[in-house]
Nucleic acid binder design. Sequence first.
DNA 1: AGTGCCCACG
DNA 2: TTCACACCATCAA
DNA 3: GATGGTGTGTCTCGTGGGCACTGT
Length: 533
Amino acid sequence: MPLLVPNQAPPEGYYAQNLRAVVDTVCHQYADLLTSDETYFANSALALSEPALRLLARLLSRTKTYIRLDSLSYADVGDVSKALHELSEADLISLDASGEASEILNLLTVTELKATFAHSDLKGRKSELIETIRARHDDMTIRVRISERQPWLHVIASQVFEVFCLLFFGNNMQKIEEFVIRDLGVTRFEAYEMDPAFRLFRDRRAIDRYQELQGLAETVESLGKTVTAEDAEDICRSLMTPEEDRVFELRRSRILNALGRNLERVNEHELALRCYRSSSAHPARERMMRILKKDGRVEVLEEVRAEILDGPRSYEERQFALRFAKPRTPQPTIELRESLAPTDEVASIENFAAQQLVDEGCQAWHLENLLPNGLFGLAYWDWLYASVRGSFVHPFQTAPLDLYWPEFFEVRQDTCEDPLAKPEELKARILAIADTKRGISSQLVAWSVLSRSLLNTILGAMKTEQIQGLLRIVTEDLRQFRAGFPDLTVVDQQGVIAFVEIKGPGDQLRPNQRLWIERLMQAQFNVYVWRFR
DNA sequence: AGTGCCCACG
DNA sequence: TTCACACCATCAA
DNA sequence: GATGGTGTGTCTCGTGGGCACTGT
Ligand SMILES: [Mn+2]
């Protein structure tokens, strides 16, 4: 029986308990790195009376930070106005009618706006209405007039609480709602070990820098191709120093790559080159080569090419350096089937092709990367959730933090058994883990797609060496081979497995797709491209 | 009156 | 709010 | 065929209420 049931009252004090858990954990882990504001928030929150903490938990779970008082009706809080005053006394919320006029005006409905700011000519969309009101009254008048009818509060603690969530989850995407999703039973998480002494953020600088990088990413994103040289200079100044932490460094490099790409679009080649030069992430050097080619700077181009070949960052980067701006060299030939494209509209060309294979007597599924990722995730389940310092930092993870980093296998090989060492047991191992772990969230295993019978059929159609071969490819480079797998997995009437990449008119193989196909052919799989014209 | 979006909620 | 992929336009050989 | 640009599906769920907006 799950802790929470939709539309049924949660256990007494449930949301407050979640809030307390986050604040407690962060305080224990990061007490010495918190600013005075953050420490103050933690102390005052933990010192609140139970009703006030319950109310605060609700307020912090709202998406907006300005909230109408008449929208607060929480039975488990009891005396709401008493709790409000307590929160206000603790400076966790403000009751003194603060805020931007436009934001506050948005708290009212159209009807209320018209009633509160009675003008005969108020009409149009709500946004236009608000503009009109703002043009006629100053902010103070607006606030006063609304607060007389519809008092509201501002959740001061919101910003600081975001930092607490960042420290708790180690990222800006997961929020405190994770608790609810888990307690409803929607997601189950593996019972991995965590080291409470481990810190994702080493020092205060790391916390601040994380947020700074987030801001820069947003700026670059929002500027897009309206970016000017001055903008870029500004942003670059904050991005030119390599980060010590590799996660930060990857983040920095990706922002530089995005900025560089935008600069290319506005023909700022020199600035773009500077961004790419400072970046340590693919495709920075690829973009450099393209720019240099365009500008006819052959010598520098060759220098970059040599640099890549000397230490390629990925298989794809190396492949690009080998082939770019060079006479065409033959590539391994791939079996090709060709058909006419369906005349009438179909939902997707992949499903159309799959249906045709079914009509021919085969079994066919559109699985793409879900198959290799799923098989790897199952065969290496214990590797994924092994106790490795720093790989798990909170209870809501679906993969270890170092999954896509080079030392993933190295740091686990002493404690985990290599599934490939006993190839004859692979099939049974994968099926057994699928049975025992079914439903537990994994970044690699899509349970809804990989049913027991599907796994049975597919694994049954693969020879032991083929399963081993497939996993060898994936484990060669988890990052590279997490994408590019052929669209369809097919088992024919003789029980022979094949993989098919479907190409509609005007679509062609991408480098990672070609790479997967070549590897699969080497591993003795039937693979072909099915092109519709 | 109908439709579709946003948001709180469990 | 990303990532992987398909689709589409354009250009060149 | 190469390249660049854009669109789509995907979300850790499902539901219900309130609201804006549209059309009669
Ligand atoms: Mn395809």
